[in-house]
Simulated scan of single mutants.
Amino acid sequence: MTKTVLCVDDSASSRALMACALKPHGYTVVQAVDGTDGLGKMGAHKIDLVISDLNMPKMNGIEMIQAIRDDNRFDGVPIILMTAEGQKDELHKYKVVGITGWISKPFKLREICSLAKKLIG
């Protein structure tokens, strides 16, 4: 069964890179432009993994993650937060909202694929 990854980022190029990395490995990729869009896509699709940027307009990554974790329909869905190198010191705060892990931006394509394989097969 094909696994679906939701990529949430206000950068079209970041979303496209993630999709280019994941699709050849058999993943279906759903893209969202911000947290509000991401929540809508969570409700409209069966999402197996979320990869989200931190800083986005309308609803940032943390607000979206909190909303996902507050909705029992999405229990058990792993969430990876993408953060800029300088934000690493703040990661302990983000664990509290329920992130499964994190990756630094700029990310490496093989890192995205490796995390997806590790978390959802």
Rank of each mutant, 00 (worst) to 15 (best):
V33F: 02
K95V: 13
E63D: 15
P57Y: 02
I99S: 06
A16N: 14
M56W: 00
A44F: 06
M64T: 03
T83A: 15
T28E: 14
I79C: 10
A16M: 13
G35A: 03
L91H: 01
S13F: 06
I51F: 10
R73W: 04
M18H: 09
Q31W: 00
V29H: 09
F74S: 09
K93R: 14
D70A: 15
M18V: 15
F74W: 13
P24M: 08
G101V: 07
M64P: 05
G86C: 05
V50A: 04
N72P: 14
K23Q: 15
G86I: 08
K58H: 07
G101N: 14
E63Q: 13
R15L: 02
Q31I: 04
E90F: 12
C20Q: 14
G98L: 12
R69N: 07
L49E: 11
G38L: 04
T36F: 00
G101M: 04
Y94C: 01
I51W: 09
A84V: 12
D34M: 04
R15K: 06
I47G: 07
L54A: 02
I51T: 13
V96G: 05
T4M: 04
R15Y: 06
R69A: 01
Y94S: 03
V97T: 03
R15F: 06
Q87K: 14
C20E: 15
L54I: 02
M64I: 05
T28D: 15
P78E: 11
M56P: 01
G40D: 10
H92R: 02
T36E: 09
D10L: 09
L54T: 00
M64D: 04
L49Q: 09
I65A: 07
K58E: 10
